[in-house]
Design a protein around this nucleic acid. Structure first.
Lengths: 107, 107
DNA sequence: ATAACAAATGAATGATTGTTCATGTATATT
DNA sequence: AATATACATGAACAATCATTCATTTGTTAT
C-alpha cells in the first residue's frame, strides 16, 4: 500500500479535519439514530438539545458538515431537517470508537 | 446509538485530530507497507524520503504520532525505527480512503 | 579528536479555526 | 401588523498548530 496521490491525501485530510471536532462528532452521532439502517432526520433544535451546543454553534457546524457533504438538509416550514449523507461516516466513527475504547483497556 | 460520554468524545476528537494532517497521513501510509499483516519498520530517513517532508517536520510529526500512541520507535545505532502500534490505524485510513474515492465517482 | 551522519529540539511565525455575541431572515400564529 | 419561533450569518477573538530555520545531541567512522 503506497502513499496515495496528493489529491487523495488532500481529500482524506479534509474529511478527517471535518470529523475531528467534538461538536461535530456529537452532531454526527445524534444523526446516526438508535436503530441499524434507518436514516434519521432531526431538526436543529433537536440536535441542539442532544448535543448541548449553543444554537449558533450547532448551526455553524451543521453548515461545515453540509459543505463537506457529510450531511444533507431539507426545509419544511419553520424547521430544517438534517440527516446523514453517507454510510462511511458511521464506519469512521465505529473505527475511532473501537480504538479509544480498547486503549482504555490497556491501562 | 446514543452520543458517547464526554471522555470518549474527547478521545475520539483527539485521535481524529492526530490523523487529520497530510504529513502525518503520509507517514502512516509509509508505515503500512506493501504486504498485508506484516509490521513494517522504517527509519526516519526512509520516511523523510517517501513522504518528501523535511527532516525536521518529519521528526516533529513522528513525535506527535508517538505521543498519541499510534506509532512506536526502537533505536538501533544511529537509526531510529518507527512502526505502527495499532491495527485501527489501517482501518481508519481504509474507511477514509474509500469515502474520498467514492465521492470522486459521483462527479 | 574530528568529521560525518541520523535524528531531535526549540523558538518563531503565519494561518487556520472553534466559539461567542449580536443580529438578520424566514415562517407561523394571534 | 405584531410577536414568537427556528435557523442562519457575520464579525471578532483566542487558541491551536503545521512548518521552517537554526542548533544540538547522539552515534559511527577515520
Amino acid at each position: 500500500m503506497s502513499i496515495p496521490s496528493y489529491e487523495i491525501i488532500d481529500k482524506m485530510e479534509n474529511m478527517l479535519n471535518i470529523a475531528s471536532d467534538s461538536t461535530r462528532i456529537k452532531i454526527l452521532y445524534s444523526l446516526l439514530g438508535e436503530n441499524e439502517e434507518e436514516n434519521i432526520e432531526k431538526t436543529v433544535s433537536e440536535i441542539v438539545e442532544e448535543t448541548s451546543a449553543s444554537q449558533s454553534l450547532a448551526s455553524h457546524q451543521l453548515k461545515v458538515l453540509k459543505d463537506a457533504r457529510l450531511i444533507k438538509s431539507r426545509k419544511q416550514g419553520k424547521n430544517v431537517f438534517y440527516s446523514l449523507c453517507d454510510r462511511h461516516v458511521k464506519l469512521l466513527l465505529e473505527v475511532v470508537y473501537e480504538h479509544v475504547v480498547e486503549e482504555d483497556e490497556d491501562e
